[in-house]
């Protein structure tokens, strides 16, 4: 078996050669490299999915308040809001869950970086929202639910190979942008898209966040990060809505990654997680340096 790929087109070639679908191929590959059985790997994936659920529940149940004071139990407010202008249960849960998980992270709780900690609410938030709103049969031990996380991981692997998943190297397009693309691919897979369709949904999402800067106030993973997790869950959902309507990305996934890499490289370091530019450099943003001393 050939386990080597660095682009989506190479990955598709591997799938065509092997006759496996994307989750089966990646599990077999990981089993080969890590020396673990596919069942052991699935158990570990299930364990990590359960950690995302624990963070989600905690973020809603216990209003998360951070040391800096910038995080003030937003997810708990959303969960109990009676002023939603939108009726859709999936949408409401996606926003609430993504925010809940990321607020737990901001407050130093236990999460799963997916792909990073600052973006850890987006994909699990959206996938759990789909589970709770539309398909209660799914869950950590359900192979299809695990497969959605695996497809999302594949998007992260490809972004890491061609561009980066570090805000310090590529700005927030590489973190929350990447996570939204991963979430879109995972949900598209759950809805029945194949590999190409799922990666096309990822491309739609990723294009919308190219150039997104990483300008965290006082260098904390809080503002704009936590609320951005909610926004990005909505973006990922939008990408899947477009894809399911038959709308495709004009620029293929691999080429979007090339653009992402070029944009990240040309972004000034003041806008790449250095806390020296953007929101971090505003008067209010600067005032938080004093508050956390």
């Amino acid at each position: 078996m050939n386990w080597k790929f660095s682009t989506a087109s190479e990955l598709f070639a591997r799938l065509d050669e092997s006759g496996l679908d994307l989750p089966a191929y990646l599990l077999a590959r990981e089993s080969f490299y890590a020396g673990k059985t596919e069942m052991e790997l699935r158990e570990e994936i299930a364990r990590r999915i359960r950690v995302t659920k624990a963070a989600l529940d905690r973020g809603i149940r216990e209003p998360q308040v951070s040391f800096s004071g910038m995080t003030q139990g937003g997810a708990a407010k959303l969960a109990h809001s009676e002023s939603w202008p939108v009726e859709d249960d999936l949408f409401r849960r996606a926003l609430t869950y993504a925010l809940a998980i990321n607020e737990v992270n901001a407050c130093g709780g236990k999460v799963v970086a997916f792909p990073t900690a600052g973006s850890c609410g987006i994909a699990p938030g959206l996938l759990w929202a789909y589970r709770d709103a539309r398909d209660a049969a799914l869950g950590p031990d359900h192979p299809r639910f695990q497969d959605a996380f695996i497809v999302a991981s594949a998007v992260g692997m490809l972004i890491a190979a061609r561009a980066t998943l570090a805000g310090a190297a590529g700005g927030c397009q590489a973190e929350c942008g990447a996570a939204a693309a991963m979430a879109a691919a995972g949900l598209a897979w759950l809805l029945g898209e194949d590999e190409r369709g799922s990666l096309d949904a990822a491309a739609l999402a990723l294009k919308n966040t190219l150039g997104l800067v990483c300008d965290p106030i006082a260098g904390l993973v809080e503002v704009p990060c936590t609320k951005r997790n909610a926004f990005m869950a909505a973006e990922a959902l939008t990408a899947v809505c477009l894809k399911r309507a038959g709308i495709s990305s004009v620029i293929p996934f691999d080429e979007v990654l090339g653009a992402m890499k070029m944009i990240g490289d040309s972004m000034p370091s003041t806008l790449k997680e250095s806390a020296e530019g953007g929101l971090a450099a505003t008067p209010t943003g600067l005032s938080y340096w004093e508050k956390i001393k």
Partner: peptide, 20 residues
């Protein structure tokens, strides 16, 4: 070729707030 695997992206399980 990428050597990254599923559990590298879906992970680490960690205490927040920043993976990097």
């Amino acid at each position: 070729a990428t050597t990254t695997g599923i559990l590298d992206i879906l992970g680490p399980v960690m205490i927040g707030p920043s993976s990097s």
